[in-house]
Design a protein around this nucleic acid. Structure first.
Length: 108
DNA sequence: TAAATGACTAACA
DNA sequence: GTGTTAGCCATTT
């Protein structure tokens, strides 16, 4: 387990800071916590917290990543649309408008 | 201890 | 535009 304060804790903490109506990419979060993008995806898969807006985390293509098994992919899209994020006909988010710009001054 | 896993990304064909 | 290859690194078995 991730005893106490682990890398994942930082990832979850960062994800919680994503404002409503915005999205962040795995690579972006990975860079901020100083790890590889796969760890971010793995952290989401583990998700010990149920109060993390994991649905605001998408891949670099602006699309919801297909996960193993279930169809949470659909749920993620619904949650984002409920927050005001729009999807193109191809099922992609306009990152130029909805990509979260992390406020570094508040992360120090 | 070593090998396998994975909700990714960038580069190349 | 899509498909494949390689790199990535903490967690799990």
């Amino acid at each position: 387990m991730a005893g106490g304060n682990s890398l994942y804790e930082r990832i979850y903490n960062l994800v919680r800071q994503i404002p409503k109506g915005k999205v962040a990419t795995y690579g972006q979060i990975a860079m901020l916590v100083g790890t590889g993008p796969r760890q971010v995806g793995y952290a989401m898969a583990a998700l010990p917290h149920d109060d993390v807006p994991w649905h605001r985390v998408i891949n670099s293509k602006g699309m919801v990543s297909p996960r193993t098994g279930g169809d949470g992919e659909i749920i993620q899209r619904v949650l984002l649309e409920a927050e005001g994020v729009t999807f193109s006909l191809s099922g992609k988010v306009n990152l130029r408008e909805f990509l979260w710009e992390p406020d570094l001054t508040s992360l120090v």
